[in-house]
Structures are given as C-alpha cells and as structure tokens.
Design a binder for these strands. Structure first.
Lengths: 136, 136
DNA sequence: ATAATAGTCTACTGATTTGGTAGGGATTAA
DNA sequence: TTAATCCCTACCAAATCAGTAGACTATTAT
C-alpha cells in the first residue's frame, strides 16, 4: 500500500503544478486546499526539496515551485523518495537492491522471476509524470 | 513490499506441493528446509488452513497438505490472505475497497485512474499458481 | 527598523504493524 | 502410554506511520 505521505506528496505536486505559474505556492494553501495537516505537509515538502523535486523561497511572498519541469517528474520518482522501492521484494529492486539470503540461486529462483515480472509490468505505468497526471 | 509472512507462505506452499505426494508435510520439516522460525511458521500455516488453502492432520504422522489442488491456488490469493489488498490505494481495490474521502469525485480522479491501471497490470502476473511456480 | 509572512529544523508522541517467542492443550499412531 | 504433531492464547520488542510542538531563520512591505 501507498503511504499517506506518498499520496499527500503526489497531490501536493499536482496542486503546485496547477498554481505555480504566477507566484510561489505556500504550504498553507496546499494544506487548506488538499486537506493535509500543515505540519505533516511541511515534512513532506522538505523531503521533496531535499531530493530536488521542488525548490522553496522563504519570507513574505515565499512558497514552493518545481525545481525541474513537472513534465520530467514521474510518479515513480516520488514513490521511491517517500516510500522506497517499487518492487515487492528487495532482490528484484532496481534502486534498492538487496541480496536475497533465502534462496540459494537468484538466477533460477522462481519466486524472484515472478516478482521481477511484476515489477516490469508496474514500472511503465508509474512513468507517468505529474504534468500528465494534472491534465484534464 | 511483501511481508516476510507472505514470502514464507509462498515458499511454504511450494515446499508442501513438492513433498505432499506420499505423506503429509510437517511444519518441522518446512521450518528446517526453508529456514522459517518454527513458531512463526505455525501461525502462517494456521492462517492458510483457516482460509482453506491447506488442510492439516494432527497426531503422530500428521502434517499439512493442500486443501484444493495447487493448480488452483494463485499467488494473489496468498498475498490477499496474508498481506491484504494488491492495489496500492484502497479506492481501487477489488477485494478491500474503501471509499476515498480525499478526492471529490472518484470517477474523474486522475490519481485513482493511474492506480487502477497499475492494479490492472499487476493482477495478471499474480494469477500464476503455486503449481506453476514449482515447475523446474 | 520592525511586523508579518513563510520556510527550516529538531524532537517528541501515540497507535499500529511486523516479526517473532513462550507455554501449554488436544489428537493420533505405534 | 508415549512420542509426534497440530492447535490456541498470550505476550513482546522494534520499527513504521501519522501527526504535533515549538523554536529559529529569511524575506518583504510598511
């Protein structure tokens, strides 16, 4: 399951994308419009900033904006930042690989093959970008 | 991520399938051969029995067997029993649906569509049965 | 200069889940 | 009757999740 943080993050980015044109988007307005607890949101935004998804501006007319174009930010990027691996078992993860110390031979492990196939089916769907997701 | 319990459950069923022909398969032998803590395994087996995936026989030459043919037990069945929904958000889950009280309109929610598509890509892979998974 | 606005950071907390462990009870075959 | 084996309840420590509190820093408008 997706964590609430990840869902909030995706909603937050869609909201920023739709509102960043004329000014920075404040955490307050995101919080109010998307119904995300303010302090909780701050933490999420911080993570997004640290991973260079958004950039921030402090002070009176501050707020958040995309760091790189929303057309280049994929849903899978956000999921990996917030929740970690997409794959369901670590030994088939591309970005969070861990050796499986349960099966003897990774090359022939059938369970591994199955979950590799699963990951291969999942990834293309999650290539969708925030910009694409925001169109209506 | 798949829980350890779910991975243990899948391994357990593959092991039972490969060994049930001539006699019941004991928890002890599963535990030893698949490296699963005995007491933890017992709990998993109990859940599988309660969901009619395996049946048990008590006493001296007791153990576990498939309740219905392994050719009819899908990986997704096991995952749902042990870990719950396959879908990453409840509002697109087939078996564990919950209304999304975040988005205003489920029909037009873009996030929902994305995760519905994701689920649709995942399900066919997880249709694979324990019997298929055990072939070599 | 200063007040108001808005992001930054560290620390804490309560509830839930995860991955177990302990210990006995019931059943069956030899 | 005894050894093997499953059945059941209860407990536990660590991690994760969702969220809160409070103080600090930077920027802008007046």
């Amino acid at each position: 399951m997706l964590s609430k943080r990840a869902r909030y993050a995706i909603k937050t980015l869609i909201y920023i994308y739709k509102n960043e044109e004329h000014h920075h988007v404040t955490a307050k307005s995101i919080s109010e419009n998307e119904n995300i607890p303010y302090k909780f949101l701050e933490k999420i935004l911080r993570e997004l900033r640290q991973h260079k998804i958004v950039k921030s501006k402090r002070g009176a007319v501050g707020g958040y904006r995309f760091f790189k174009p929303a057309t280049t930010v994929k849903v899978m990027d956000i999921m990996r930042i917030i929740d970690g691996p997409i794959a369901l078992i670590p030994c088939v993860s591309e970005n969070f690989y861990e050796k499986c110390h349960e099966c003897v031979d990774e090359e022939t492990c059938r369970v591994r093959h199955l979950f590799a196939e699963l990951r291969d089916q999942m990834l293309p769907v999650l290539e969708k970008t925030i910009a694409e997701l925001s169109k209506e």
